[in-house]
Design a protein around this nucleic acid. Sequence first.
DNA 1: GTCGGCCATTTTGCATTCATTTTTTGTCCT
DNA 2: AGGACAAAAAATGAATGCAAAATGGCCGAC
Lengths: 249, 249
Amino acid sequence: MKSTIPDTGVPITPAAGNGGDRQENRHEASLHGEILLRLRDYVVEGNIPEGARVPERQLCEMLGISRTPLREALKVLAAEGLIELLPNRGARVRQLSQRDLEELFDVMAGLESLAGRLACEAITDAEITAIEQLHYEMYGHYLHRDMHGYFQTNQRIHESIVAAARNETLRTAYANFAGRIRRVRYSANFARKRQRWAEAMREHEAILDALRRRAGSELSDILFQHLRNKRTAAIEHLSEPQEDAPASA
Amino acid sequence: MKSTIPDTGVPITPAAGNGGDRQENRHEASLHGEILLRLRDYVVEGNIPEGARVPERQLCEMLGISRTPLREALKVLAAEGLIELLPNRGARVRQLSQRDLEELFDVMAGLESLAGRLACEAITDAEITAIEQLHYEMYGHYLHRDMHGYFQTNQRIHESIVAAARNETLRTAYANFAGRIRRVRYSANFARKRQRWAEAMREHEAILDALRRRAGSELSDILFQHLRNKRTAAIEHLSEPQEDAPASA
DNA sequence: GTCGGCCATTTTGCATTCATTTTTTGTCCT
DNA sequence: AGGACAAAAAATGAATGCAAAATGGCCGAC
């Protein structure tokens, strides 16, 4: 059994055994729907090495289903850009080149830039107040050098801006691209440089300021530049040697 | 007639050269890949009424295949947002509400805005010259009141800007959203108002000007406003003449 | 000793088949 | 006559089977 698969013999998810305790499903009641969600999470979490070839058979065993719904889910994941489907040669986790990452970051920047612009048109004072709260909370994390908390709050701020844009299509697209990037766990390391961190905080203050003034164009510009700088930091980090131990879970 | 099922006995043989090529060349070999391309074109072309329920069996007969590859293609189309997949109730052509259209237009505006910004970073003089050529050509169409030629050239200009952004991810996303909108055939009517047409020409001149100066932020702003105005015109057009009452049961 | 062709095994792609759910239709009761 | 219930018919969801292509190993040739 010369398994070309690295370490894919993994429990893909606890997934609450088939006890039959769950028929209350909002949207994805069907099997292929659930498989899709689980597989997507599984890939996004980075449990499969890049470019690793994962035979359908093995995935079927792991998931306890037949190949038909699995293949449907794979097609969708391929359409989402998470995996690649080579004809007659199976599915591979799409490996993102540095160029791909740059492109993804730029698209994310464009989407957030758009979100900021749209948000200025319809955001309520209450929403701004909520974002301000998050901002102060994030500032606290920054002062305490709590990188994990900082990133989580940071993400919530950006999500709040996207939500304030009141555009579900944008929200979905944003989530999709965010998922593609999330595979690359840059966030845990990208802001080691304290200087960049301080810059990011200043940029966030400018974001908040523009948001308060509902200055759409300005906010759009600031957000794009903010994400651009993030991108630069992330790419630089990726180019550097990674000496760290990844196990922070 | 309570049945929403129309006579879908239509020959699904368009497959003719489309204005824009799709992003996936990797699927063309396999059957489901070809089915995907044909079905997507078929839906984008608007051959299926909105919300119409099309039984898989019927599509299989039309396409001469079995249900397995068809279902795979349907899943992908659903992921792309072209159709809806109701659990146990089949696939329906996704009908876009006015709100959906507004959202789509805004996202397109954001993507083109981003494209303009990125294009300013890397566009060559030759590319600008080419766009200028298209611009003059479009101006000729405008002077001759040739709406069809105008729209085609206009589309080529916008595609050129997206291409100049040198971001394949962006290009793919742009093509996807463009396909969703294309179902709604607004373009044939949206510029009935000559005033709007003249405005659009002026905006295009401003676009070209900003592009020549590589003024990224400015071009970003102009493009967004340009698309915003397009959106307004399109939505207004949709509200006015109701050629078909989509009222489904 | 290494390269190249041949064959067995595995894997993918598609068709077919089975099981569930939905929809329709027919009948019966109010 | 109209509505409710039930059974038939059809459609969807998932599993299995089968053919074609690919992967890998083996043997022979150079």
